[in-house]
Design a binder for these strands. Structure first.
Lengths: 197, 197
DNA sequence: ATGCGTAATTAACCTAGGTTTATTCATTTG
DNA sequence: CAAATGAATAAACCTAGGTTAATTACGCAT
C-alpha cells in the first residue's frame, strides 16, 4: 500500500463528513432564554435544532432510564456552548435534558445557522474545533474516572473539582453525577467523616 | 442582560479557543506506518505530536491502571483518524496506547501541520468538525452503556456491534472493552449458554 | 405552631461482579 | 515429543454498591 493511495483514502475519509446541510431552511434569529432554577433548555426525548450559548449560570445534563434512575453526565457553567450534539447532527431525540441549576441566561441559534456560519468563517470553525476537542477530552476524563476510580474516589474528585457546588447542590445530584445512589453517597460521606478522626 | 452583551460574550468565548500554535516549528512530511498485530502507534505515557490516519486494519485504544488492570476504551477500524486528542492539544503524555489488532497501515502528520491545514482549508476544518462530532457521540453512547446497562447487556451489545470480531478477538479484550474481568465475562457466557436452552 | 412533602441518613439485606486459586485446553518452543 | 506459556473456564469466597424500608431533619404553606 503506497503513500499516494493512503493520501487518496484520507481525502475520501474527509469527504464523508461533508454531508448535506439544508441551507435553504436556515433561519437566523438568535433567541434569548432566561431560565429559573430547575427549568430546562432541552428535554430528553425531544427533537432539537438549536445550539445554545450559556451566557450566565450553571446547568447539568441528565438522563432518566426507563427504571427511573437518574444519571448526570455533565455539570458545567457559563460561558459555554451547550446542546446535544447527537440531537443536532443526527436529528434524533435528545438522550438527556439540560437543566438550569441556578438562574441562567442563554442565547440559541438554529443549528443550520451554526453550520452556515462555519461555511463562511474559518476562525469560527476553528474555534468550534477547539471547543469540540475540549469537551471530548472532558468526556474521556469522566469515562476514565468512572471505570478506574471507586465511588469514594469519584466523590473526592467531585469535591476537588466543584468545591463551589458542595453546599448548594443537592446530594442526590452529586450522587447522580458520580454514578451511585444517594444512599451509597450517604454511606461514603459518613465513612469519610469517621476516617478523618 | 441584553442580547448585545450576550453576543459579545459569545465572541469572547470563541476567541478563547484561538490559542497559540507555533507555525514556525511545523514540519510537513507525512510518514507511513506499517504495524503487525500487537504493535502500537502510540504508547500510554508517551508524548505524541502526531495525528494518525488509519488506512487499513483495526486498532484498539487501551490503558493500564497502576494496579495493572486493562480497559479498552475504543475499538475501531479503518478508515479513521486516530490519536490522542489530549496528548496532541494539551501536549501531555497519552493516557492510552493504540494497538493494532491486525496488520494495519497508517499515515501520520505533525499535529502542527494538521492545524496549519485547518488555517488554510475551510472544507478540511469542517470535515474535522464532523469527525470530532462523530467521535464525541460515540463516546457519549459508550458512557451511556457503561452507566445504564448491565455487564450482560454490554456483552450482548458488543456481539451486535462487533459480530465480525467475536471469533478473532481474545475474550480478555472483549471483557476489557465492556469493563469487566475475563472471569466475569466467562461467567456471563456460560450463563447465556444455559439460558438459551 | 401544625402538617405536608422532600432530602438525607441509617440499618438490614441482596446481588453483580471482583479476587484468589485451581484446572483444562491450546499454542508455542526446545 | 515434552515442557512451558498463556487463554479460558470453574468454584469458593468477598465486597462495593444497590434495594427496601424506616427514621430523622428540613423547609414551606396554611
Amino acid at each position: 500500500m503506497d503513500k499516494q493511495f493512503l493520501m487518496q483514502q484520507l481525502r475520501h475519509f474527509f469527504d464523508q463528513y461533508q454531508a448535506g446541510i439544508d441551507w435553504e431552511r436556515c433561519k437566523i434569529e438568535p433567541k434569548v432564554h432566561v431560565l429559573n432554577k430547575g427549568e430546562c433548555l432541552l428535554k430528553q426525548g425531544e427533537l432539537s435544532d438549536r445550539m445554545f450559548f450559556l451566557g450566565s449560570g450553571l446547568v447539568r445534563y441528565y438522563s432518566l432510564s426507563e427504571s427511573g434512575k437518574e444519571y448526570t453526565q455533565t455539570l458545567t457553567k457559563a460561558p459555554r456552548l451547550v446542546g446535544s450534539t447527537q440531537a443536532l447532527t443526527l436529528a434524533r431525540p435528545a438522550l438527556f435534558s439540560i437543566e438550569a441549576l441556578t438562574t441562567s441566561v442563554a442565547l440559541s441559534f438554529h443549528w443550520q445557522l451554526f453550520y452556515q456560519q462555519m461555511s463562511q468563517d474559518l476562525a469560527f470553525t476553528q474555534a468550534y474545533v477547539r471547543f469540540l476537542e475540549s469537551i471530548f477530552i472532558s468526556k474521556e476524563q469522566k469515562e476514565h474516572a468512572m471505570v478506574k476510580h471507586s465511588a469514594t474516589q469519584r466523590y473526592l474528585d467531585f469535591c476537588r473539582d466543584f468545591s463551589e457546588l458542595m453546599e448548594t447542590l443537592p446530594k442526590q445530584q452529586i450522587a447522580s453525577y458520580i454514578g451511585i445512589t444517594p444512599i451509597a453517597l450517604s454511606r461514603i460521606r459518613t465513612q469519610l467523616k469517621n476516617d478523618e478522626q
